[in-house]
Design a protein around this nucleic acid. Structure first.
Lengths: 150, 150
DNA sequence: CCACACTCGTTGTAGTATACAACTAAAGTT
DNA sequence: AACTTTAGTTGTATACTACAACGAGTGTGG
């Protein structure tokens, strides 16, 4: 039951369909998890934090967004007092983005409810399955650093 | 290396982060794969086809969308001549949606390029890994029929 | 040192996706 | 017949996004 092409195709179709369903549902779910935070911005804020500061260009590359989109999102995060921009002394074009204290705090409280949701949702999974699933997702996403993910 | 809670948390965080990254990238990727099709509508059309006809309400439930959103998307698909509405004779409130010939055809050609993209992307995976990954995604998504997926 | 090219970011404009609320119409329930 | 529930539409407002044009800073080849 291993290398029969038909089985591969079936698996690919399932993966395609389920990933699509997930992506379509993600927004509404995210809205429920942090109704306050501008919601897409949350993702960017989380990434800024994860990277310990980064540039707008990095965000655009990572999420495949136009720089104008990122620019506005960052502006909105700044207006909300969640991120700060620090000009890079070596290159005046660059603004290094960092979460403010409020940003870190907002992230932490949101992260808590996200974690709780995931824990509940994946509560019945064995640790081995979680690990394996995480590994698959990493592999899947990294495969598409260059090419489109969907 | 099995049931240590810390390891579970780490896996959960990775899953969370990678699923989020995927969801954020999905739109831009989808835009590249079918620049012609209204692009969100594609998903709905695919689901209508997959189900061999369904109601707008079913689409809303499946993708966690507001009925007004679905109503407009379906209207746009109809205007493009990709779906037809057939009133249910037993219940005049209901419109059963079906792909038109053009809809089926559009779906087929898009599906071809999608399949190609997935085949390329997952070409190095073993059939076993694909099967396992598909199974995880199914399990993950079905766990959230009630609760939010993200 | 200057002209050209490149990079980072912003702003103008426009299209798409989405939700919420109010509404119509058709069934179903008392 | 009156109330409730379900299916779908429309009005309105907002979020997200891209593309194009632009401004400012950096780097490089004459």
């Amino acid at each position: 039951m291993a290398d029969i092409p038909r089985e591969r195709e079936e698996s690919l179709d399932v993966i395609q369909r389920e990933l699509t369903a997930f992506a379509r549902r993600a927004r509404s779910a995210a809205a429920r998890l942090h109704p306050d935070l501008p919601l897409v911005s949350y993702t960017l804020l989380a990434h800024i934090d994860y990277r310990n500061g980064c540039r707008a260009t990095d965000l655009a590359a990572h999420y495949m967004l136009d720089k104008s989109t990122v620019s506005r999102q960052v502006a909105s995060l700044e207006k909300l007092g969640l991120v700060e921009r620090h000009p890079d002394p070596d290159d005046q074009r660059i603004q290094v983005l960092h979460p403010t204290a409020a940003g870190t705090q907002a992230l932490a409280s949101t992260q808590a409810s996200r974690r709780a949701a995931y824990r509940e949702r994946l509560g019945t999974w064995t640790s081995g399955d979680l690990e394996q699933f995480a590994e698959y997702l990493l592999r899947y996403n990294s495969a598409g650093e260059e090419t489109p993910p969907l």
